[in-house]
Write a protein that binds this DNA or RNA. Structure first.
Lengths: 115, 115
DNA sequence: CCTTTGATCAACCGATCAGTTGAATAGAAC
DNA sequence: GTTCTATTCAACTGATCGGTTGATCAAAGG
C-alpha cells in the first residue's frame, strides 16, 4: 500500500529532526493556524518559521491553503501512516533479528538471553 | 515509560534521515557486522561509513563493542520502541484533530467530511 | 622485531541548514 | 489610490553534514 521512496523518507525524517518543527506540528494538532499565529510563541523571526513550514510542507507533513493574505496550515492526515509503517517494519526486522539470537543462545546453552 | 528528550528525538530522526544509514540498519537486522563488512557494499570510503556508524551509535540505534582490531556493530533492541511511541502519539493527536473536524462538519451539515 | 589488518583521528572541502535582515508581493481596509 | 497587514523572496552568515585523503593507533601474525 504505502511504501515511501528513499527521498520521501529522507525528507520526512529530516523534517521531524528539529524541535521547532515538531513543536509546530504539535500546535497544528490543536487546530489550523496561520504563519503569524504559529510564529508568535517562538523567539525567532516569522521568516524563520515560514521556512520551517516550507520544510514541513515539502515533507508532506502539512498542507497550506490560501485565505486572502493569510496562509493557514493544516496537518496532512495521510502523512503519518506510511511513517509508522516504515518504523513498524524496522521494528519487526529488529525483533526477528533478536529472536534469532535468543534461539541460538537457547539451543547452545540455557543461559539468560539478555543479561 | 519511554519518553525521549528533544535532543534524543533530534538525533534519532536525523540518523534515520539518510539512505546510507537506513541501509546500514537494514544490513544489521540480518546480523552483526564489522565496519569493513558494512562498508564493502557501498561506493564510499570506509571512513565515511565509520562516521555514519558513529551517528547511529550516538542516536542509540546501534551499539559497538570490541573484538581484537574489529569493532562489530549490533542493532540496539531498545531504540525502536520509544520512536514508535512518539510517532503513535503524534498519530493519535492528529487523528483526534481530524475527528474534531469531522464532528464539526457533521454537526453543521451532512456533507462528506473528507472530499 | 616488523608487517599486515581493522579501524579511528584529523584536516579539509563543497553543500546544505537554521537563522538573520531588508525588500517585494498580494490582498483588505480606509 | 494609499496604507496597512500577512506572507514570501532574496541575500547573507555561521554551523553542521557528508564526503574525501593521509596519518595514526591497536592488535594479530609472520
Amino acid at each position: 500500500m504505502s511504501a515511501m521512496t528513499d527521498e520521501e523518507l529522507d525528507q520526512a525524517f529530516l523534517a521531524l529532526a528539529d524541535p521547532t518543527r515538531r513543536s509546530l506540528l504539535a500546535r497544528l494538532a490543536l487546530g489550523d493556524a496561520t504563519v503569524g499565529e504559529l510564529a508568535a510563541p517562538f523567539a525567532m523571526s516569522l521568516q524563520a518559521v515560514s521556512k520551517h513550514l516550507t520544510v514541513l510542507e515539502q515533507a508532506k507533513l502539512i498542507t497550506r491553503r490560501r485565505d486572502a493574505q493569510r496562509r493557514p496550515c493544516s496537518l496532512n492526515r495521510e502523512a503519518i501512516g506510511p511513517l509508522v509503517d516504515w518504523l513498524d517494519a524496522y521494528r519487526r526486522r529488529t525483533e526477528e533479528r533478536f529472536q534469532r539470537i535468543d534461539d541460538l543462545l537457547a539451543r547452545t546453552d540455557g543461559s539468560s538471553p539478555t543479561p
